[in-house]
Design a binder for these strands. Structure first.
Length: 778
DNA sequence: AGCTGTGGCAGGGAGG
DNA sequence: CCTCCCTGCCAC
């Protein structure tokens, strides 16, 4: 494997510089003395003790502005070398006999990392946990789940209550072992000591749990502190080190307690599930039970208990609770089995430990690969460039309505292909590491995919698939890194170059489709939905057409047939529905289907779209009548009426923003505040609108679904009828006004008559998205 | 010891 | 009414 991806020595990611080597560093701090640090476009090498000599750059400056930049910290921490070296030798010797051989070879090595924390050094230095050449199945993984008595969902809010304690610890591993530490007739402290004894005996490489960093581990640490027990999790019997951190997926940022354990890795399957859904975006929740069902790995006859009944079961029905806890760890094991393989294989090429690979984002990974090579080459690191990216993907819609048949053709790996064929790299990358890594990863992925197809064994195929998918995620992040404002090697000019080249390619692809007689419906970034020439379709014909398209593109850019569909409902840019030849319905876009919509709205829209795609106008009208009826009757489930929203801000930030007029009051936050619970970032809140006012202020009329009382139903029927009509309005453009009115209204005057009603196709011009309806030709 | 990007639509509240 | 601004969610 290319040394850029495998690390520069096979046994260790840690390589350290000796101060005597400073003359070989490009650029050492003495070279820039007399120049303001702010004016220097790169980070020079220097000793911490010397940093005060650089004008405009003090230790305080370092701590405050660069402290968060771990990579830079490694570069300038040379003065800590002797202490670190001794510490390293100590932990290695305590771990295994070959340590001295390893540390001796270390002195020969050049710099890459100086990791100041002994636990991390130990973790990375133990060859066993580096995973070099290991298969995922060789890893010894232990699953852990605790059940607690009287613990509210708000976690720590009343953890000082004497009744709040751990009652069960369920454990399992991937070698078929299962164990339950039962809190009956034993103290909590004895349970914890038993846990640490078991950990020492089983000696797992990895400790896994669902939300283990959000709940189980911080909770155990807290109880240990209260009880005066040492949380001996480490391979050397040491206690974990913990820190507050954040995990961000897309626009969400979820706080968690980071935990580092000497010689072991921690995997939170909740993070794996969230990362998975960041790409798939079709999960309803990230809870263990839902996720297990979603992936089809929930054990048959699994025991379910609702969270607030745990204490009751402990008091009245312990057997059921024990079964439940055991099923939790089994599901955790299966989830990790399904999701963690790709991170495992990435760890073999990144200077990060397994847990950190899962916790950190793609930009960090790319930057670390760059950093490793730069420091090894003794080349100074650039500072982030100023300015921002200004362009993105090309998106447009040309036809609105129900269209058939449909082909979706997309450019394979558009942005990476552009970066490779146009040789795009950051201006600051003087060593050309960025394009080399990108090319190497791309080649590696192709090779892995080829091997995957040849592999006969299913286990081997899964292994290779996990590897290639991890490469794909990383490859696709290279473009994003260029535009990342805090990236050391960012380059917004090149980022714009990538997107504008992409736009040009898509426009040229559209022209080719039109020249060949096809009709373009919608374009988004790297793919086009279109009707083939003369509406003729078959797999062979479509494939030939797309091949023609592909041949018309520049070298290095290839177009693939991504999908064939019986019909498409085109609504807006990034909003459409597809009906496959297997009758499978896919709905895309937040305007059509969104998790923040009321559940009845989602199912109403889904049913309407089904009817529209089937041309079933009576069905469409009946769907409206049904929902109209159940809202008026009050026979609709309150959970169907409720909106579920995520609180992306903490209480303090929200109140401050409202106070300063930066944002308006919002129903979800007000409900959370009203419930008296802790308003936690990332928390989900379900609420409904009460009262009679058809135009209520939602932040005043909102109530938590838990407050709804079946004896005194107070949901706002007028408001929900209005919501039903708002959902219907999405379909307004598909009909003549009088037809629209007759479909989406109750039969109070005349019964609905579908005869003569037609679904319209509208031409959308890019200049104005509002144009007149034109009856479609049939 | 956190952090890849732009583009589009909907909904709510405030104020003209 | 309308416009502006903000957040949330989503496609790629």
């Amino acid at each position: 494997m290319n040394p850029l991806l495998s690390g520069h020595n096979s046994d260790s990611h840690i390589v350290a510089a000796h101060p005597a080597d400073e003359k070989n560093m490009r650029v050492y701090f003495r070279d820039i003395q007399g120049i303001r640090f702010e004016d220097v476009p790169f980070y020079p090498f220097f000793h911490l003790s010397d940093s005060r000599l650089i004008e405009g750059f003090t230790r305080k400056h370092w701590a405050k502005e660069l402290g968060g930049n771990a990579f830079y910290k490694y570069l300038c921490a040379f003065e800590e070398w002797p202490a670190m070296w001794d510490g390293l030798r100590h932990v290695l010797e305590s771990y295994n006999a070959t340590a001295s051989a390893k540390t001796d070879s270390l002195t020969q090595l050049e710099v890459v990392h100086i990791l100041t924390d002994p636990a991390t050094q130990y973790l990375l230095q133990s060859g066993r946990t580096l995973f070099k050449g290991m298969a995922f199945d060789d890893l010894h993984r232990l699953q852990l789940d605790i059940e607690t008595y009287n613990t509210p969902s708000s976690q720590f809010s009343d953890s000082r209550r004497s009744s709040d304690r751990i009652i069960l610890i369920a454990l399992s591993d991937n070698r078929g072992w299962e164990h339950l530490i039962d809190g009956s007739g034993t103290t909590e402290k004895e349970m914890l000591l038993e846990l640490f004894r078991i950990l020492k005996e089983k000696d797992p490489d990895v400790i896994e749990g669902h939300n283990i960093l959000g709940f189980d581990l911080p909770y155990i640490l807290k109880r240990c502190k209260n009880l005066g027990a040492i949380p001996a999790f480490g391979r050397d019997g040491s206690a974990p080190r913990s820190f507050d951190s954040r995990f961000s997926v897309a626009e969400r940022s979820i706080p968690y307690t980071g935990v580092e354990i000497a010689g072991r890795h921690i995997v939170d399957t909740l993070m794996l599930v969230q990362s998975y859904d960041m790409i798939k975006r079709n999960m309803e929740s990230y809870g263990l039970k839902y996720a297990a069902k979603y992936f089809g790995i929930a054990p048959a006859n699994r025991t379910y208990i609702s969270g607030n009944r745990i204490s009751w079961h402990w008091d009245n029905d312990r057997k059921t609770l024990m079964d439940y806890a055991m099923d939790d760890v089994r599901e955790t094991r299966a989830l990790s089995e399904r999701l963690s393989g790709s991170s495992f294989y990435l760890t073999q090429m990144l200077p990060l430990n397994y847990g950190a690979v899962i916790r950190s984002g793609s930009a960090s990974k790319i930057e670390l690969l760059m950093t490793r090579e730069y420091v090894r080459s003794k080349e100074s690191m650039p500072k982030p460039g100023e300015g921002i990216q200004t362009s993105g993907g090309y998106t447009d819609v040309f036809l609105r309505g129900v269209l058939e048949p449909i082909i979706h053709a997309d450019v394979e790996s558009l942005y990476p292909s552009i970066m490779i064929t146009e040789a795009i790299k950051p201006a600051s990358d003087v060593l050309d590491v960025f394009p080399q890594i990108l090319k190497e990863l791309t080649q590696l992925r192709l090779d892995t995919k080829r091997h995957m197809k040849l592999a006969g064994d299913a286990t081997e195929r899964n292994r290779l698939d996990a590897m290639q998918s991890s490469f794909k995620i990383l490859i696709n992040s290279f473009y994003g890194y260029l535009g990342y404002r805090k990236g050391l090697f960012n380059d917004h000019v090149r980022a714009d170059q990538v997107t504008s080249t992409g736009q040009d390619l898509l426009r040229s692809m559209m022209r080719t489709i039109q020249t060949l007689g096809g009709t373009v419906v919608e374009v988004d970034t790297d793919g086009i939905f279109f009707i083939p020439p003369r509406g003729e379709t078959s797999r062979e014909v479509d494939e030939r057409f797309v091949q023609q398209l592909s041949d018309s593109m520049p070298a290095g850019i290839s177009v693939a047939l991504d999908g064939r569909y019986r019909k498409m409902l085109s609504y807006r840019m990034k909003n459409y529905a597809l009906l496959g030849y297997d009758e499978h319905l896919t709905i895309k876009g937040s305007a059509l289907i969104s998790r923040s919509m009321e559940r009845f709205g989602r199912s109403y829209i889904k049913q309407c779209i089904t009817c529209l795609l089937d041309g079933d106008l009576d069905g469409l009208h009946n769907t409206y009548l049904h929902f109209h009826h159940v809202i008026i009757e009050g026979s609709i489930d309150i959970l169907d009426l409720a909106k579920t929203e995520t609180l992306n801000e903490g209480l303090h930030e929200y109140l401050q923003a409202v106070e300063s007029g930066k944002r308006n009051r919002s129903a979800a936050y007000e409900v959370a505040i009203g419930m008296g619970g802790v308003v936690k970032q990332g928390m989900k809140v379900s609420y409904y609108i009460s009262g009679n006012d058809p135009n209520p202020k939602s932040f005043e009329s909102c109530k938590s679904v838990d407050e709804w009382n079946p004896s005194f139903p107070d949901q706002n029927k007028a408001y929900y009828l209005k919501r039903l009509n708002e959902f219907s309005e999405k379909f307004m453009d598909f009909f003549k006004p009088q037809d629209y009115r007759s479909i989406f209204s109750p039969d109070d005057l005349f019964p609905f008559e579908s005869h003569g009603v037609r679904i319209l196709t509208t031409t959308v011009t890019s200049a104005s998205s509002l144009s007149q309806g034109i009856p479609s030709e049939e």
